[in-house]
Design a protein around this nucleic acid. Structure first.
Lengths: 176, 176
DNA sequence: TCGCCTTATGCAACCACTTGCATATCCGAA
DNA sequence: TTCGGATATGCAAGTGGTTGCATAAGGCGA
């Protein structure tokens, strides 16, 4: 389970409040490890109880805003986890199940759904490419930057592969 | 949630018992939607309660073996689901989080874990390629076969991408 | 025939995630 | 000045997935 360490990583990159983290997840790390704001708040409470992060109330902000910062023990935990045993990814790909099902029964409106999915992946690809142009106009010099770019490029490769796959599936379903 | 429909699809392809389904998942559909035998048995009980599958006891077998078969109502449900709204995949990729973390702290033994992961993906690729040679020596003629091959080839493309990515990450972590 | 191994099925507890809703606080507009 | 909207945090119930263990039945060797 990676959520606590995804949050620790995000806080190591930059301190922030729960809602800021939720927005950061939507734009950055969350592209690889999604989390709702409820998950993030609950996990922040646990991280604080473990003394891996500390929080200070932010005055003059709406709600009861608290700013979280990673503590040395949290950085140490993140380091331990980074080198710990890494399980192969648990694949849960509904699209593949659908297509296997479409081989057994009438696919119905599946082509319409594939079209919607294709649009989603094209939009996601455009997002990644915009981030790449904005954040990495030149090859980064630091190891941190190189690793961030590597991960971003994997996202781009994934979306491209997905787009090609949706197109192939649509071609197959449309031409009997 | 796709597990009930993954099971219905598998039973539509061929009837079988819970343990046979569990083995089939390990080799086939489970490459895209993993499930333990406990999940499968629980789900089979629900599918039976919904009258989407029926079971008959198998005599002369160890345990209390029961053979499941999809019913017309189950096939109808599978058809409904095939055309239903399809959500974009929920990505949860621990490897990407690790690499972002490795940009913030000392990566420790991460290269060793990446080596193990690389071996896993190479083995998985070899498995897929063996299945492809065995099951699809010639291009399939049926729509069912074409869809199965499409899904299999996506698995192959995924493993290749993953192998290239692990190699790139290793090169980056080893050459500072 | 007794005990053990294997196959097959299943229960129960736990944990993470999802969803819907509730509360707190600030700010600006009526 | 108070009321509604936006921001921020949080609770609680329901669901799916994981893990450890339990039970049932056939087969086989001592």
């Amino acid at each position: 389970m990676s959520l606590p360490h995804a949050i620790l990583t995000s806080l190591a990159e930059r301190p922030g409040s729960g809602s800021e983290l939720a927005r950061r997840f939507d734009r950055s790390i969350g592209h690889f490890w999604q989390a709702t704001h409820q998950q993030i708040y609950r996990e922040l409470a646990r991280l604080e109880a473990s003394a891996w992060v500390e929080a200070t109330a932010v005055e003059g902000a709406p709600g009861r805003k608290r700013r979280y910062r990673i503590l040395p023990a949290g950085r140490q935990e993140l380091e331990r986890w980074t080198g710990a045993a890494l399980a192969p990814p648990a694949i849960r790909d509904e699209l593949m199940v659908r297509l296997r099902a479409a081989g057994e029964v009438d696919p119905g409106d599946l082509t319409h759904e594939l079209d919607r999915l294709l649009n989603h992946h094209r939009a996601q690809l455009a997002t990644y490419e915009a981030v790449r142009e904005r954040d990495f106009p030149h090859p980064p010099a630091s190891r941190t930057g190189l690793l961030q770019l590597l991960v971003l490029d994997e996202g781009i490769a994934f979306e491209r592969q997905r787009i090609a796959f949706c197109e192939a599936a649509l071609a197959l379903l449309r031409n009997p």
